[in-house]
Amino acid sequence: MRITCPFCGDRDAEEFAVLGSDVGSRPDAAAPDAELRFSDYVYLRDNPAGPNSELWYHGSGCRRWLKVLRDTRTHQILAVELALP
């Protein structure tokens, strides 16, 4: 697998570490149903067979966090962008 980093260009996936699927931002702890929302946020996953939005860290390169759209059926990388532009 190769990932095209916006800074470093086309690089081998071994240079990167994957955190996991992009599950969005933390729920509001003050919400009345915060407990339910947190258990969903921490434990439940969409786990799609197809394009999946993931967070990858380019540890052996520019050390930036990337948001990678990758097809889980073929491992094809569909899009890469900076996670925190």
Partner: peptide
């Protein structure tokens, strides 16, 4: 491995990644 996909047919989200 396909638990999430089949469970999603019944509207369920599972604490599972493949």
């Amino acid at each position: 491995g396909h638990s999430s996909r089949v469970a999603a047919m019944a509207g369920l989200r599972l604490p599972i990644e493949s």
